[in-house]
Design a binder for these strands. Structure first.
Ligand SMILES: NC(=O)c1ccc[n+]([C@@H]2O[C@H](COP(=O)([O-])OP(=O)(O)OC[C@H]3O[C@@H](n4cnc5c(N)ncnc54)[C@H](O)[C@@H]3O)[C@@H](O)[C@H]2O)c1
Ligand SMILES: NC(=O)c1ccc[n+]([C@@H]2O[C@H](COP(=O)([O-])OP(=O)(O)OC[C@H]3O[C@@H](n4cnc5c(N)ncnc54)[C@H](O)[C@@H]3O)[C@@H](O)[C@H]2O)c1
Lengths: 234, 234
DNA sequence: AGGAGTTTGTGAACGTGAGAACAAAACCGG
DNA sequence: CCGGTTTTGTTCTCACGTTCACAAACTCCT
């Protein structure tokens, strides 16, 4: 109905698969770094911590990039996954809320190396504004709109206290940001078409506590080795 | 087969439900704080950002704590969920790797208020050892065993670089830690019976980038408003 | 060239989770 | 005490995700 990208868009990739592709990408990068040029689905699966059938099925959604009897070319597959995810291009990102967590995020080098570029740090606190964090000057929150327009930002990160999170999200959405990564422990309401993903440390710990309690109570088949995945729709 | 907790353990609660219980708990706390003493499943569901049928089904796994025609008593339900998750007791936690992220975690007040107590911060860097972060002195990594035994720690947090993560995890497991929250972008191998949950910022961003790219390519039914859930078994 | 050995890609079976729908239970007003 | 109203708890159905198992496709050795 609309534009098509080079390799036949609108193939639908299950959310669960999308959530694992970055893991495969990381595993492939590790393999490439250790000089391995070819790997089997078994190799890659164990490096990624999944079972090989699942890996093969996941990759089959992207296309047929392996060679039967041989395996996958590490660099080629890596490029294909990167292209599918969209990290062959650079994504400009803004971070709002430069407190404890915001500082850590700003200093995190893993951003750049994975296709994301921090173009602005913003905070409502006048004390913080003007300070330089990780080589970037903190701007007043009011400059959000200007910055987003100048850099054509689509992805915003919220690292403010929970009470401010909805306000910040509203502002982001109003300005045209369509993907939000939210670290504040708050449920964000956003219009259709805007993606929100949340990272919530407390929830993760509480899930661990639940299983820990069950182990202590003698519930035999204790699960183990969990992860994080999922997606959803608004 | 073994000990039973007060309210009939070994009821099996689906992982997807376990992952949402902390969200309900947070929503209930918010309601309680604003003076609301009773709420319907509809109210709570919208506060938690889920649909009410799902909420009711989730709660039904815990027991029958509502009143038909009336709704749920906020405080009562809150207590029941907290008890089920295991956050009525305090969980001692150790954090290993006090860099950018470790500092932020140590300073995070949301720990204590949700039933977790940081009993130790550990790092391999001699420069860091002895410094006080968030009122706790950083200890050398070698003191892990002693600390874990003294405080009966079951939950460990890894905030070291990826290369060190597996080593740290091995040490933790050897000492008796059975739940690990891993922030390093690495797949951890742990024996059966040990739970690992990972928080990976880069993966979250890449998932957002994927959907963002699809939006740009004109894939109409763009999903939105995702979250984070899941569990698994080793 | 052909057969043995590998390894992918996928069809099918199975399990888990989501959502609609409704009967059972509680309250309320008369 | 009874009928109407509200809201829960649960059942049923469908969609999604995982895993198994195997034919197809490729390599390599003889
Ligand atoms: N620190 C952690 O390790 C951690 C872990 C998990 C979750 N979180 C969550 O992340 C968020 C940030 O945590 P933190 O420890 O960095 O908090 P913080 O208080 O150190 O920092 C919050 C920052 O947000 C700024 N801010 C407040 N309102 C704002 C607004 N309306 N617009 C722009 N900026 C605003 C403040 O000036 C401050 O600099 C919180 O919601 C917290 O619950 C933190
Ligand atoms: N900074 C972030 O916002 C962020 C975001 C997502 C993920 N991460 C990940 O979290 C981890 C920590 O990030 P960071 O920015 O705090 O890194 P960092 O380099 O600032 O801190 C790492 C700390 O771990 C310590 N360490 C190294 N090896 C150790 C060992 N064997 N035992 C004990 N301590 C050891 C180091 O001394 C250092 O203090 C990394 O894996 C990073 O990829 C960080």
């Amino acid at each position: 109905m609309t534009a098509r990208s080079s390799t036949d868009a609108n193939r639908v990739i299950p959310e669960a698969t999308v959530a694992r592709l970055p893991v495969y990408l990381r595993a492939l990068t590790a393999l490439a770094d250790s000089g391995i040029r070819t790997c089997s689905s078994e190799d890659l699966a164990s490096a990624a911590g999944v079972n090989s059938a699942k890996l093969r099925k996941d990759l089959s959604y992207l296309g047929s990039y392996g060679t039967r009897g041989v395996g996958y070319d590490v660099d080629y597959l890596r490029y294909q996954i990167a292209r599918e995810i969209g990290v062959t291009q650079d994504w400009p990102v803004v971070i709002v809320g430069i407190g404890n967590l915001g500082h850590a995020l700003a200093n995190f080098s893993g951003f750049r190396s994975r296709g994301f570029r921090i173009v602005a740090l913003l905070d409502a606190d006048p004390e913080l504004v003007g300070q330089t964090v990780a080589g970037v000057q903190v701007q007043p929150f009011d400059e959000l709109e200007e910055t987003v327009r100048n850099h054509d930002v689509a992805i915003g990160v919220i690292a403010t206290p929970a009470v401010a999170a909805q306000d910040v999200a509203d502002r982001m959405v109003a300005i045209g940001i369509t993907s939000i990564l939210n670290f504040a422990p708050a449920v964000l309401a956003v219009p259709e078409g805007v993606d929100v993903r949340k990272v919530d440390l407390s929830i993760e710990l509480q899930i661990l506590a639940y299983h820990e309690q069950r182990k202590a109570n003698g519930a035999e088949p204790g699960p183990a080795a969990a992860a994080t995945a999922d997606g959803g729709a608004a």
